[in-house]
């Protein structure tokens, strides 16, 4: 089963991305007002969705660590935190390019953009914090608290437009989007989620191997 997932997951993710990107770049029609530049949506939105999912997993795993002292949960939090920063950065850069094309500015202090920036930079700090100490218990506990506090930003990013408005548009719905464009976006979201799970499994293995090695090391001998 594990072997089937190891081979099947990357294949499914890559196939989904190839199909999704072909649909997004060549088959989907141009948008009425934005023209072709809107095609950035097919990477920007899936990357942003995966980033938020990743931060949520990091927070849930951190919570699990604090209550059960599960080292697997600590490794999962480390992996998810790093992937959240990766996908969040991709979403942010693409959003800036799209913003320049449609709004005329790379960035503006819009509530959603500001909240997402705080979340991504916050989790970049979380990664830095994890590298500050090599003592596993202290590292896991400190970073778990930080991840849980940062997770408060997830609903703020999600509902920012509904709560405060701003330049960024609200999430598209079936009623606000052409059916083929919606299906193309759905396929890309699914493919990015599979890509994320594949990356997460690999990154988790790296984190878990490192923690296992640290925990198996004999305590340092005191010098006489």
């Amino acid at each position: 089963m594990k072997r089937a997932i190891d081979f099947g997951l990357p294949l499914l993710a890559i196939a989904g991305i190839v199909v999704g990107e072909i649909m997004g770049l060549w088959i989907a029609p141009a948008e009425r007002h934005m023209g072709d530049v809107y095609r950035i949506i097919y990477v920007h939105v899936p990357a942003a969705w995966v980033a938020l999912l990743s931060f949520l997993i990091a927070a849930a795993a951190s919570f699990t660590f604090l209550f059960k002292t599960s080292w697997a949960a600590d490794a999962l939090a480390e992996a998810a935190g790093e992937l959240g920063v990766l996908f969040g950065t991709v979403a942010y850069i693409l959003g800036a390019i799209w913003g320049k094309g449609t709004w005329g500015v790379w960035w503006t202090p819009d509530p959603k953009l500001t909240a997402m920036a705080i979340l991504v930079f916050g989790f970049a700090g979380y990664i830095a914090l994890r590298n500050l100490t090599e003592e596993p218990e202290r590292r896991a506990a400190w970073s778990a608290v930080v991840a849980i506090i940062l997770a408060a930003g997830i609903p703020i990013v999600w509902f920012a437009v509904r709560w405060w408005g701003g330049l960024h548009q609200n999430q598209s719905t079936r009623d606000s989007m052409n059916a083929f464009m919606g299906a193309t976006l759905g396929i890309n979201v699914l493919a990015f989620t599979l890509l994320f799970v594949w990356f997460l499994r690999m990154r988790y293995r790296v984190a878990k191997a490192k923690i296992d090695e640290e925990l198996s090391e004999p305590p340092e001998q005191e010098l006489a």
Binding site: M34, G35, D36, V37, R39, I97, W98, K100, G101, T102
Partner: peptide, 11 residues
């Protein structure tokens, strides 16, 4: 609206 395909390819 500016950019078009250049922005898409860069992204």
């Amino acid at each position: 609206i500016v950019g078009g395909w250049g922005y898409v390819i860069a992204s």
